[in-house]
């Protein structure tokens, strides 16, 4: 069943609010990683407003679905999604990375409500997600689904492939690996720094069922998650490969590797927020 126009609009607006949170928080922090947070905004919005079975009133609810941000540097995107979903006040986002803030530079499961795993060192989150998925099965709670988001640059970490072997070997069909193929990493284009393509062939070879989508297109995202649900019981882990635009939604950040790990200054902040407010008012009429 495809999404109604209304639902799509609601999720697009949620994605826009994630983007505003990313700009608010990185501006407030005067550091942080807007580029990859913006490219994954639709994914964060979809997960936290449609896909995940979670309870903001009870963040540690035992039966919840889990999400592990393996590309932990895009914490601004995750925090914005959590705040907008009611896990903590949106007003706290600009305290990101401040000395007395609970919003650590990379996700901290012990200080930030709704964060299921502390991450930041690339390649490790996906292993944790594998352990969670295996744990859900071992404890007879197969209905619990585990999601993890990686970057395409992150795929150069060897541990990622250890984890993918594990996922297929233990038939973790309750695991959904999402890979943000935004094509850029700190030192430049992923194809130039360390080419990880073709990711689709590699994932198939590692025993995954895959869906390839435009990561900014909520309709195809909806279809991909439906395919993940349909894949349950197959004994194969599932991967969503989403092609995205780094810096998406803020004109001067799009396709610009310089915005991987740099915060907007006051002037840039004002322009970015103006653009995003315009996008939001268009969506919300």
């Amino acid at each position: 069943m495809s999404m109604t126009g209304e639902e799509k609009k609601r999720l697009a607006a949620a994605a826009c609010r994630v983007r505003m949170g990313v700009i608010e928080s990185t501006h407030g922090a005067k550091s942080g990683h807007p580029g990859g947070s913006l490219s994954s905004a639709e994914l964060f919005a979809y997960l936290y407003n449609k896909e995940l079975r979670i309870d903001p009133e009870n963040p540690k609810w035992d039966g919840r679905d889990r999400f592990v941000l393996s590309k932990g540097h895009t914490a601004p995107g995750l925090y914005a999604a959590l705040a907008n979903r009611g896990f903590f006040p949106v007003e706290d986002l600009p305290t990101l990375r401040h000395t007395d803030s609970y919003l650590q530079g990379h996700p901290n499961m012990n200080t930030v409500p709704g964060v299921d795993m502390s991450t930041g060192s690339l390649g490790q989150g996906v292993s944790a997600a594998c352990g969670m998925a295996k744990g859900a099965k071992l404890t007879g709670r197969d209905e619990i689904r585990v999601y993890t988001l990686l970057g395409d640059g992150e795929l150069a970490e060897g541990e990622v492939w250890e984890a993918f072997l594990f996922a297929a070997h233990y038939k973790l069909d309750n695991l959904c690996v999402i890979i943000d193929l935004n094509g850029l990493q700190i030192d430049g284009a992923t194809k130039d720094v360390m080419n990880t393509a073709p990711v689709n062939d590699k994932m198939r070879a590692f025993g995954f069922e895959i869906a390839e989508i435009d990561g900014q297109d909520l309709d195809s995202m909806d279809v991909a998650f439906a395919a993940f649900h349909a894949n349950r019981g197959s004994g194969k882990p599932f991967a969503i490969l989403m092609t995205t635009v780094k810096g998406k939604g803020v004109s001067f950040m799009e396709h610009n590797v310089g915005w991987h790990g740099k915060a907007p200054n006051d002037e840039e902040y004002a322009v970015a927020m103006q653009e995003l407010r315009a996008q939001l008012s268009e969506l919300e009429g």
Partner: peptide, 23 residues
């Protein structure tokens, strides 16, 4: 008993994930 193959890095973090599930 979960054999992780010759992959100690994944093993340690998978153990971390398992622990969050009450194991």
């Amino acid at each position: 008993h979960i054999d992780c193959g010759i992959a100690e890095q994944n093993m340690i973090v998978a153990a971390a994930g398992l622990s969050t599930m009450g194991l």
